[in-house]
């Protein structure tokens, strides 16, 4: 493979980006390369990394799920509220988790139905549910944050919640373990199961897939359900880390997930993209935050930097010839 083709391809670009980052940090702040920094970054990206793995299913179909942040908040609130109301009993916790899972499945089904039967654009549907869920969360909690009690050592339910976010197995924090598990399972699903193959087919050429007998509607709904489910899982883990749940939990995380998708080279038109791309994208998003803190970039800059990076990433994607974001005018209709 020629050098140019290698660097035009996905892995080539990722290596270039990483090399750039490493070069900058080697000069500016060598402590970037310590083991503790690496594990810190891994911990930071676990939450939206899980969301990215879920959203990948939807993006493969050419859609988007912007509601992941609010879905996480609502799931956490459901678990917290039901657990609290039951007096922190084990049965209450179980009920809460089941309820949160059920809610996320319902939301995912709603997305899928709106997109398949009503033919609504996915970003409008999920943008709307993002705000709906944002409003529903305080309705569940009765208006403000719910705090898990810090000192109920004998209570197994509270201990379980605490360990979900804070325990370490072999010195690896639980959220990272969850993240790794999700990556493995999702990656396996996409690469080696027929469902995964069908998703790629659907995303690449929906008409042909339908003709061939792929159960389009069912698979689409399943993809949106996966995305919502993983968002719910992320929300529960995040609320365990802080031992609190509320409306603003994971607020704005969909921006990081979207950035992860774009930087990871996932084609937003569908049909292309792997778990490794999503993981790399999440890693990149975490590295950028890490860099900005280590380099003492003033907080005022950070929002502008985030926007600029997404923009640059989209431009690079377009120019590298991959179809992500590339729009041909006026031969093919421009999309949103």
């Amino acid at each position: 493979m020629s050098v140019r083709r290698f660097f035009g391809g996905a892995w080539g670009q990722r290596i270039v980006i990483l090399a750039l980052i490493f070069a900058v940090m080697a000069v500016a702040e060598p402590k970037f390369f310590t083991g503790s920094n690496a594990s810190s970054v891994l911990f930071a990206i676990s939450i939206y990394g899980m969301m990215a793995c879920g959203m990948l299913f939807v993006v493969l179909l050419g859609g988007l799920d912007l509601s992941v942040g609010s879905m996480a908040a609502v799931s956490a609130c459901i678990v917290a509220q039901i657990t609290m109301k039951s007096g922190y009993s084990g049965a209450g916790l179980l009920t809460g988790i089941v309820a949160a899972i059920a809610a996320s499945i319902a939301v995912g089904v709603l997305h899928g139905l709106c997109v398949t039967y009503m033919r609504m654009p996915s970003f409008i549907v999920t943008l709307s549910t993002k705000y709906i869920l944002y409003g529903v969360a305080p309705i569940i909690t009765g208006g403000s944050f719910i705090y898990y009690p810090q000192e109920m050592d004998s209570n197994s339910a509270v201990n379980f919640i605490y360990s979900l976010g804070n325990k370490r197995i072999a010195n690896v924090p639980m959220p990272v373990i969850f993240f790794a598990a999700v990556v493995v399972i999702a990656g396996f699903t996409l690469a080696s199961t027929t469902y995964g193959r069908r998703l790629y087919a659907l995303g690449g050429n929906p008409t042909a897939s339908a003709l061939v007998g792929v159960r389009v509607r069912r698979d689409t709904v399943a993809a949106y359900v996966v995305s919502s489910l993983l968002a719910a899982l992320s929300g529960i883990v995040l609320s365990s880390v802080n031992m609190q749940a509320g409306q603003t939990l994971a607020q704005g995380y969909e921006g990081s997930v979207l950035m992860a998708m774009i930087v990871g080279g996932i084609n937003l038109a569908g049909g292309e993209g792997t778990i490794s791309g999503a993981v790399f994208g999440a890693l990149f998003a975490g590295l950028i935050n890490n860099m900005m803190t280590l380099l003492s970039v003033p907080s005022d800059f950070q929002k502008a930097v985030q926007g600029a990076i997404i923009l640059v990433a989209v431009c690079i994607n377009a120019y590298s010839g991959r179809r992500a974001g590339r729009v041909k005018l006026p031969a093919a209709p421009a999309e949103k």
């Binding site: 988007l64 970003f123 921006g255 979207l258 774009i262 937003l268 005022d300 800059f301 950070q302 929002k303 502008a304 930097v305 985030q306 926007g307 600029a308 997404i310 923009l311 989209v314 431009c315 377009a318 974001g325 590339r326 729009v327 041909k328 005018l329 421009a334 999309e335 949103k336």
Partner: peptide
């Protein structure tokens, strides 16, 4: 020739950040 949705999302964040700066 970028997709409108992603572009305007990114520029929106960029402009907000510019305003802050």
């Amino acid at each position: 020739r970028l997709t409108e949705f992603v572009t305007t999302l990114a520029t929106g964040i960029l402009y907000s950040g510019l305003g802050l700066l």
